[in-house]
Design a protein around this nucleic acid. Structure first.
Lengths: 232, 232
DNA sequence: GCCTAATTTTAGGTTAACCTAAATATTTAC
DNA sequence: GTAAATATTTAGGTTAACCTAAAATTAGGC
């Protein structure tokens, strides 16, 4: 149980996210997402598979998955990261497009005590400012009830539940057009290339245009049943 | 003006403090205070003297001083460190013996924006929880009016103004005996080895014993003139 | 099924920040 | 003033985390 370095923590996070999507995380995908060369990834993965206990399952050319220890470590980092995001947003007046970058650095140095205090002061929030679930202190991940905005049919009422946090420009654009977490919306029109026009409920403004790649980063909840705002 | 690494920041802080005491900082003193080997210090100093602009003045075997750029950088780090300490103390319920260690890590990653927000939320404090002065945004260091407790004559009323922050055990001991910043005290008796007995004003408890090395880390203000509490 | 393309790994190199051991300066002590 | 003690620097080594280039493996196209 030696100390996990900041770099290793970044790998674990990416492997976690990739594995929720694809079963196994490939060397080149990890490299692309971390913005480094695949050779470096192979290298780190080999190290992570030789720690005691191992953090990843690795066999040459076959992709990586997390071990239970690796999964726990990853959940812990997500908890830290997302609590820090909420804290910056709620207590230090950060905008939601600014919190990710700062949390990315703080998560590697904040002590368990600091994370506990932050969670306590915030009242144990369950979701980040972008709607990502925050693992509980015993590392259980809250279940999200959501669908991709791209799957929402026109004229159906829905609420914005989650937005990916990597693209600060997107987050700024959404905030500018009043598309925030909890905002009720409808798809007015879908274009053939995947772009769409969105109507914000209760506003008479002209519709907000979203490109396909923007829409892909937004997740919603159909209104009738699930109209509660997540705790942020 | 390339980026100053975390390790370099630690060197600059130590060189700053040593230079306020001794004119020049010696390799071995820096090494002792950072808990590393002198050879490593020589190495880093040579690098710090070759940056553009140089951060330290260095000539073989003659000790180091900070350049103006180095001094500015050091003051900036002290500002960050001490603001973070106040923040942890005031907003996250840290005890004063816990803040130093946490701030030591956070200071290297907190962005200028974060430091600004923290300063604003706290109302621009001028002193750390241990009474150390916090450089202003334009890096002016508040002037301290204080004397070493070891210089205080028995029976003279004084107020605790500053305590060095490196020794968490000392800080805990002081807090346990109600010796906090702003506490009014008197020296009851000085022993020959430099130890002393302290009376806390307004308390009927038996005197608090301080060893010489403890007393050396405490700084006070004689009461008549300067009885204001520092802003913390 | 074979060949090309893409992916992954190996091999060797770089930088930052430490280390130890040995060499060189400097200071102190008598 | 010289020898012994102390301080500083040099030289060479280690580890973490990246890199590039080349070799090996796997996958896709027809």
């Amino acid at each position: 149980m030696s100390k996990i370095t900041a770099a290793a923590e970044d790998y674990l996070k990416e492997i976690y996210t990739l594995c929720t999507h694809y079963e196994k995380a490939s060397t080149s995908e990890i490299a692309a997402r971390l913005g480094i060369q695949s050779a470096s990834v192979t290298n780190m993965i080999q190290k992570l598979s030789q720690t005691e206990p191992p953090l990843v399952n690795y066999q040459k050319n076959l992709g990586v998955t997390l071990t239970e220890a690796g999964r726990k470590a990853a959940l812990n980092i997500f908890r830290r990261h997302r609590l820090l995001e909420v804290y910056l947003y709620e207590k230090l007046n950060y905008a939601w497009d600014e919190v990710h970058e700062e949390a990315e650095k703080l998560e590697h140095v904040a002590s368990p005590k600091m994370i506990n205090q932050i969670a306590a002061v915030l009242g144990n929030p369950t979701h980040s400012p972008h709607g990502h679930p925050i693992p509980s202190p015993d590392l259980m991940m809250p279940i999200m009830q959501e669908m991709p905005l791209t799957d929402l049919s026109p004229s159906v009422d829905a609420t914005i539940q989650r937005v990916r946090d990597r693209d600060a420009n997107l987050l700024r654009y959404l905030a500018q057009h009043n598309l925030n977490l909890g905002t009720d919306i409808t798809v007015q029109k879908k274009l053939t290339d995947g772009a769409m026009h969105i109507l914000v409920k209760g506003e008479i403004h002209k519709p907000v245009r979203l490109t396909a790649s923007m829409a892909q980063q937004i997740f919603v909840n159909k209104s009738p049943e699930g109209s509660e705002l997540p705790g942020r």
